[in-house]
Nucleic acid binder design. Structure first.
Length: 203
DNA sequence: AGATGGATTTTC
DNA sequence: AAAATCCATCTC
């Protein structure tokens, strides 16, 4: 499947819109071990210093500086000392916002993904190869080395259009996962997904 | 220099 | 319900 690559104009919009438009899009990681592609089925939006769940709510620091950069920049950080999480910076420069990619349906490179999961002592091989943001990064081979990478021009990690654009009525909205500490921001329905067996945190 | 607190995943 | 485990930031 060869589709058009997403450009600066796609990411230079509010993260709320980008998060929903990324559903059904294709992410590719083309690293030395081989090429892996997956369809995005779950995202979350983090937007502005007023969003208490957004890392930028604690101000502009060495760590959060990435969130203020140009749209299309990758924000990758280590969470709980265990897993990397992948975000794509959105909106205009100096306004901190990003979309967290939470789950994929692996389309190509399944064997490479399985190898990466087996080699990760914190993960287990099961029917979900890239479900949940931590496992997703492991599946794609993404580490903090890719923080600040420009996803628009990179040949290693990039995003392209899916086959068909998702219908607005097919997008399910819910509260974001793991942000109960975020006061008034925690109830925002800023998690978006499409019905799929690989959704994270399913009962 | 030491303590703290997570946008998680898995297993008990 | 609890463990595994890194690092930026905070505190003394």
């Amino acid at each position: 499947m060869k589709t058009k690559r997403l450009g600066y104009d796609f990411f230079n919009r509010t993260s709320l819109v980008v998060a929903q438009d990324l559903l059904n899009c294709i992410i590719t990681s083309d690293l030395p071990e081989g090429k892996v592609t997956g369809k995005i089925i779950e995202t979350e939006s983090y937007s502005g210093e007023d969003d208490l769940a957004c890392h930028a709510s604690r101000g502009r620091t060495k760590k959060t500086e990435t969130l203020y950069r140009r749209a299309g920049t990758l924000y990758v950080y280590l969470n709980y000392g265990l897993f990397y999480l992948l975000n794509i910076v959105c909106d205009k420069k100096d306004f901190p916002s990003a979309v967290l990619i939470r789950s994929l349906e692996i389309i190509e490179g399944e064997e490479i993904v399985k190898k990466r999961i087996i080699n990760n002592p914190h993960l287990k091989l099961n029917q979900h190869l890239a479900t949940g943001p931590g496992k997703l990064c492991a599946a794609l081979g993404i580490t903090k080395d890719y923080n600040n990478l420009d996803i628009i021009t990179s040949k290693k990690i990039y995003l392209s259009e899916g086959g068909t654009k998702i219908k607005q009525s097919d997008i399910i909205k819910s509260k974001r996962i793991g942000v109960d500490y975020a006061g008034e921001s925690k109830d925002n329905l800023w998690r978006f997904y499409i019905e799929n067996e690989h959704i994270s945190k399913k009962k």
